[in-house]
């Protein structure tokens, strides 16, 4: 019979020999295997104390970037929302008023910007779509929460701290 892969093994249906019928040798072999595992290195990562190293291209939680002067880069063009395959991003645009030039980089800005982290699949398309370098994915992941609404991240959760205001 032709097999699909070269890993196929025919079943051995020959009657058991006396040694096999005694079962004990097989049981002792098995106990030897479990004894070996007793002293193996454990696979567990004791999470809160120990953290697994992420790969350099890990895509974690989003952040909204600011420019060098601490102004929000996002201009609410909606390209990220269009690119998002999970439809996790919503936003509302607003016009920049005179006197707000130190807050927003462009004449239009996002008054509301929300990402639903339960919908997000962390594909990184929003990051690629953004023409203003406003959306980036960081190296942390969304912490657990008791309620669904806790996973809808608004602007206050996403915006990085203002480097000007901190000084």
């Amino acid at each position: 019979m032709q097999t699909l892969t070269n890993r196929a093994k025919p079943v051995d249906r020959s009657p058991m020999t006396f040694m096999e019928k005694m079962y004990l040798p097989a049981i002792f072999t098995g106990m030897g295997i479990t004894l070996k595992h007793l002293f193996r290195r454990k696979a567990t990562v004791a999470f809160p104390e120990q953290k697994r190293q992420f790969s350099p291209v890990f895509r974690g939680l989003h952040v909204l970037n600011r420019d060098e002067e601490g102004r929000e880069r996002c201009t609410a063009c909606g390209l990220c929302a269009v690119a998002c395959p999970a439809e996790a991003i919503t936003m509302e645009a607003a016009e920049r008023k005179p006197g707000e030039e130190h807050l927003y980089r462009e004449e239009k800005y996002a008054a509301r910007y929300e990402i639903n982290m339960l919908r997000c699949i962390f594909c990184g398309f929003c990051e690629e779509a953004c023409p203003k370098d406003a959306v980036y994915m960081s190296e942390t992941f969304a912490p657990a929460n008791y309620q669904r609404k806790g996973f809808i991240y608004g602007k206050q959760d996403l915006l990085i701290p203002n480097p000007k205001a901190d000084k």
Binding site: T34, H37, L38, F39, R40, R41, K42, A43, T44, A46
Partner: peptide
Amino acid sequence: KVAAWIQDRL
């Protein structure tokens, strides 16, 4: 503990 160690857990 023994169960865990045999199954490569802590």
